[in-house]
Design a protein around this nucleic acid. Structure first.
Lengths: 339, 339
DNA sequence: ACATGGCTTGTTAACGATAACATACAGAAG
DNA sequence: CTTCTGTATGTTATCGTTAACAAGCCATGT
């Protein structure tokens, strides 16, 4: 009673060999229904708990898929993780989640830690990593999937979209509605690499159209909060009052900007238009509703999970790395005069 | 090169025994700095990755703390997990996260899965569990911490607050400001047990003051979304137009309610007051800012992590289960005529 | 010079499960 | 009746690391 029972105890109590107990706890093994039933019941009575650690060591399969995301508290990444988790769950795999806090150095540390647990696959957010992190992932000997991005030099598989190109849709939408003096609100580029990509995309798209791409407001480290979005809007209204439209790096910042307008009596979209990115719930609910871009986070998780399940079952085409592009979609709403 | 190197290979390459390599990868073991340095370098050159699985089996220490939360995408729980994670990280422990989706049956399944990984402690959200889940946790032989609640019959340790009592503060605040006809917006009680507790607390507090506690709007399964909050407000305004104040089970629902008022031209707080729970960022940013209750999620995670670190170091007082109450605080803002 | 003790390194067995192989047995086929 | 086939169970060795114990070496004190 002092120490927790092992298969040995269960085997003794059930009058069978340890191997038979082992088989009773797996789905595919050949064992008669009666024996399995009997062993399960005996185990239950003894309070036996299967030890995955020992199982993992002997079978050399951890059942883990390591996943890193910048922040847990972000509806977009959470949706991806949720979809990924349920897809992998169906394949008998468990997600081992790590949070990088938008920091490549932290990501490197985390990947090192996660790899020690012998994951069967690795899913990371974004395509920017430290050199050491890249090397670790390449030598890990398991499938690597980069998500939420379309890296120029992928480490392995990719499920995502181009954060640069996506801004073209947004600038096209705004110029089509007649806006010319358009500003961008984002965070410190040294950290949020995907946000920096979107800013780059914004600048490029503006330049392509011969428009001034210099209205850039930077506020703090990512993720850019609602409060910081409001602060950025305050700066913008104070320093560049003739701005006609604002694109925020993500919806929470866009919503913060919207609230600042409300506080100042600036009408949206009559006086200034606002748009975000991510299609967070708040964008559909806010008054006025915010134009955004839906990157289909759940679809990203679903596809990544499917890919990994296929790869590990071994029946996937082994024709090198897969690239799955999940095309984002512009959602036009009242905040840019649409909807 | 085909198979990944083990300590054996590293030992051979470095010209030492396997045991010495093992020591080189731990912090406390007695080994000379020169040898450690040499082994670390050799290991690095070989691309050796420490195998936690084998280590865990032999040492009977997994380095895991299993944690269950209802939803990943909730700023409150995310803050708790973040604080818990960083506190445990300092103690060399890794969080193994599972999401219950506000479902006790799912929680039971999850706890069973997590226990197989031999966690060194278990942190669960809430004090309501299935009978089987309770039994599993009690027999797990590791510290169990229930959070975000103050259960009547705790399983072990507790770090939280009473979801029932907390509504007393809110009703007191509203009645002090002169509101009498107060409604409550919540989700299906069969799922969100903490939400149901808050609803119970609301009813009790209203009755204590001789006020009508029957203005209860129920919308869907938890978590109650912004959209559902808006829908609930629509129902309320249509069916009980003389309501003076509304308390939502959580801030997102409260914000949804606020947006519905904005769409209808109902003024807040002049025509109706709104309050929420959780002190999410949105409540401080919304216009008008929303009155809420701050449950100090980070403090909950911090305390739970500290408790576990102490317990596992063994130097904690073993005087039975610990109960740490983290007192929530009312944050009065413009949406109830304050601030 | 020799015992003592601290520091560093090595040897052996074990953690709890499963892969691989061996074997027993029942019913089918010849 | 013998051989064959397939299902159900058992035996042995092993996954990669570390606990426990053993032992060597060197400096120090007497």
């Amino acid at each position: 009673m002092n120490t927790k029972p092992t298969m040995k105890e269960v085997a003794a109590a059930a009058g069978v060999s340890v191997m038979t107990v082992s088989r009773a706890f797996r789905s595919d093994a050949s064992i008669s229904d009666a024996t399995r039933e009997h062993i399960r019941k005996t185990a239950d009575d003894l309070g036996y708990v299967f030890d995955s650690v020992a199982s993992n060591l002997r079978s050399q399969r951890s059942g883990f898929v390591a996943v890193t995301i910048p922040s847990i508290n972000n509806a977009n990444f959470a949706d991806t993780v949720a979809a990924l988790t349920s897809r992998l769950d169906a394949a008998g795999l468990q997600v081992l989640l790590g949070r990088t806090n938008y920091d490549m150095a932290e990501e490197e540390r985390l990947i090192g830690q996660l790899l020690r647990r012998q994951p069967e696959a690795l899913v990371v957010t974004g395509g920017h990593h430290t050199e050491r992190a890249r090397r670790m992932m390449q030598k890990a000997g398991v499938p690597v999937v980069e998500t939420w991005d379309l890296p120029k030099a992928p480490l392995g598989h990719v499920v995502g979209f181009s954060n640069t190109d996506v801004m073209r849709f947004m600038v096209a939408h705004l110029t089509a509605r007649g806006y010319r003096r358009i500003a961008f609100i984002g965070g410190d580029s040294a950290y949020d690499t995907r946000g920096a990509d979107r800013r780059r995309g914004f600048v490029a798209a503006m330049e392509e159209r011969g428009l001034d791409p210099s209205r850039l407001i930077t506020v703090g480290r990512p993720p850019v909060s609602m409060r910081e979005g409001a602060a950025a809007m305050a700066i913008l209204l104070d320093t560049l009052p003739d701005t006609e439209a604002v694109v925020a790096v993500a919806d929470p910042a866009a919503f913060g900007a919207l609230t600042e307008c409300a506080r100042r009596g600036v009408r949206v979209p009559d006086d200034i238009a606002i748009a975000g990115f991510g299609n967070f719930e708040i964008s559909g609910v806010a008054v006025p509703a915010l134009t955004s871009i839906d990157p289909f986070p759940a679809r990203i998780g679903e596809q990544a999970g499917q890919l990994i399940a296929d790869l590990l079952r071994g029946d996937a085409t082994k024709n090198g790395p897969t690239l799955i592009e999940v095309e984002p979609q512009l959602v036009a709403r009242a905040s840019t005069g649409a909807g």
